[in-house]
């Protein structure tokens, strides 16, 4: 910003912005701190800010009770798996829409996005029954399929907006140079779209990781992801605030780190390139 402002103004704005930001961040910060407190300290009637008796026992207890690592593993498999599957289906489709558009391309894109608007509950019951009959209930691969389907429209949309920015000349040059479609996509399009594909991948891993409707309704013990893991703490049988915080922290930490690392691309990605 090239605007000239006096230092006091800047100080004022800085303080105001940080105050609001920390207010927004407070729940996460509080969880982080509580996770390292003892149970009695966590629910003491005069709360402490920093843990007085720093402890890791909450994490051990959580792993003991609900097997964090199994759920985390499931989360990774489902979110990464569904994203890769989505990219495999999405890249060719986005190529087609970006570089060989027809009059209907716009409508198809809109229709795809509208499938995202279809409420999950509208199809929950049949999917539940189909899954039951196909023995896909509570399986990681079943969940991966669903996750691919619900995120596919977003994947295609995002890829489409990134591909649109690639000059069609370059793909035509490849065609003139004798490249078949496969080579055109693998050697020219994909390498040029790496940043776009990467942010599509990241965003979808995050969305899939945090998806909490299908992961809760279609799994129970075996294929449960972290959303199911954490939901099991909603009725705290003998489980108190500190352990709950530890579990929460475990569930969100991986994606929070990933998100911080990639927030710039993500914001742009989520708007389908409509806001630059």
């Amino acid at each position: 910003m090239a605007r000239n402002v006096s230092t006091p103004t800047k100080v004022g704005f800085t303080i105001a912005a940080w105050a609001v930001a920390l207010l927004l961040f407070a729940p996460i910060l509080w969880t982080l701190l509580t996770a390292f407190k003892t149970e009695s300290e966590a629910i003491a009637s005069s709360p402490t800010f920093l843990p007085q008796n720093f402890t890791l026992e909450n994490f051990a207890a959580v792993q003991e009770r609900s097997d964090y690592f199994k759920h985390a593993f499931n989360s990774i498999v489902v979110s990464v798996g569904s994203t890769l599957l989505g990219l495999i289906i999405g890249v060719p489709a986005a190529w087609a829409m970006a570089f060989a558009p027809t009059k209907r391309t716009k409508d198809i894109l809109m229709w795809m996005l509208s499938t995202k608007m279809m409420p999950a509950v509208g199809v929950l019951i049949p999917i539940y029954l189909i899954f039951r009959d196909l023995r896909l209930l509570d399986t990681v691969h079943g969940l991966t399929i669903i996750m691919t389907l619900i995120n596919l429209p977003i994947i295609i949309w995002m890829l489409y907006t990134y591909f649109k920015e690639i000059p069609v000349d370059i793909l035509e040059a490849a065609r003139m140079d004798g490249a078949e479609l496969w080579n055109e996509i693998v050697h020219v399009l994909v390498p040029m779209a790496v940043p776009g594909i990467a942010s599509t991948l990241l965003l979808n891993v995050i969305l899939a990781w945090n998806e909490a409707f299908w992961t809760i309704t279609l799994t129970s013990g075996r294929a449960g992801t972290l959303t199911a893991f954490i939901s099991s703490f909603s009725s705290p049988q003998g489980l108190f605030l500190a352990k709950l915080s530890a579990a929460s922290l475990l569930a969100i930490a991986p994606i929070l780190l990933l998100g911080w690392f990639s927030q710039k691309q993500l914001v742009r990605g989520l708007t389908f390139g409509a806001v630059k």
């Binding site: 000059p167 000349d169 370059i170 035509e172 040059a173 490849a174 003139m176 140079d177 020219v188 390498p191 040029m192 790496v194």
Partner: peptide, 14 residues
Amino acid sequence: GLAMVFQSYALYPH
């Protein structure tokens, strides 16, 4: 068997 040179050059940037 033709070669084309584009106005935008259309080089492969990567």
